[in-house]
């Protein structure tokens, strides 16, 4: 399956990963052959009706009691955070 350059770029943009020229080419090749191989599931999947959903087939999730418990974790986290001002994480100014 051919994956075009625009597709690789679009996916990288969605995933917020910057790719070099060389990487774009490399991934174009690799993703193409892997996606090609994946086509075999198309017909295999049709053994089950399209309405079948995995997400409601699972066992239901347990619920936690609504009790507030303090966590003293933040100091430790701030210590190894990339950039901190006071107790907030700093990022470049967000332009709305």
């Amino acid at each position: 399956m051919q994956i075009d350059r625009q597709t690789v770029e679009k996916v990288a943009r969605l995933a917020h990963i910057h790719l070099s020229e060389e990487e774009i080419e490399y991934y174009q090749g690799q993703l193409g052959s892997v996606l090609d191989y994946m086509q075999q599931i198309q017909s295999a999947a049709d053994q089950l009706p399209a309405e079948w959903r995995a997400d409601i087939a699972g066992t239901s999730c347990p619920e936690r009691l609504d009790e507030a418990k303090p966590s003293q974790i933040i100091e430790k986290v701030l210590q190894s955070a990339p950039k901190v001002v006071g107790t907030a994480f700093q990022v470049p100014r967000i332009i709305e």
Partner: peptide, 28 residues
């Protein structure tokens, strides 16, 4: 509620930044 939807931190956010956080709501 007393605690957050997916972790046990307090839902009171008047505190100074990040005081009511834990590994879950910090997304560690």
């Amino acid at each position: 509620t007393a605690s957050k939807l997916f972790c046990s931190c307090k839902t009171d956010f008047g505190a100074s930044p990040n005081q009511n956080t834990c590994p879950v709501c910090l997304g560690l």
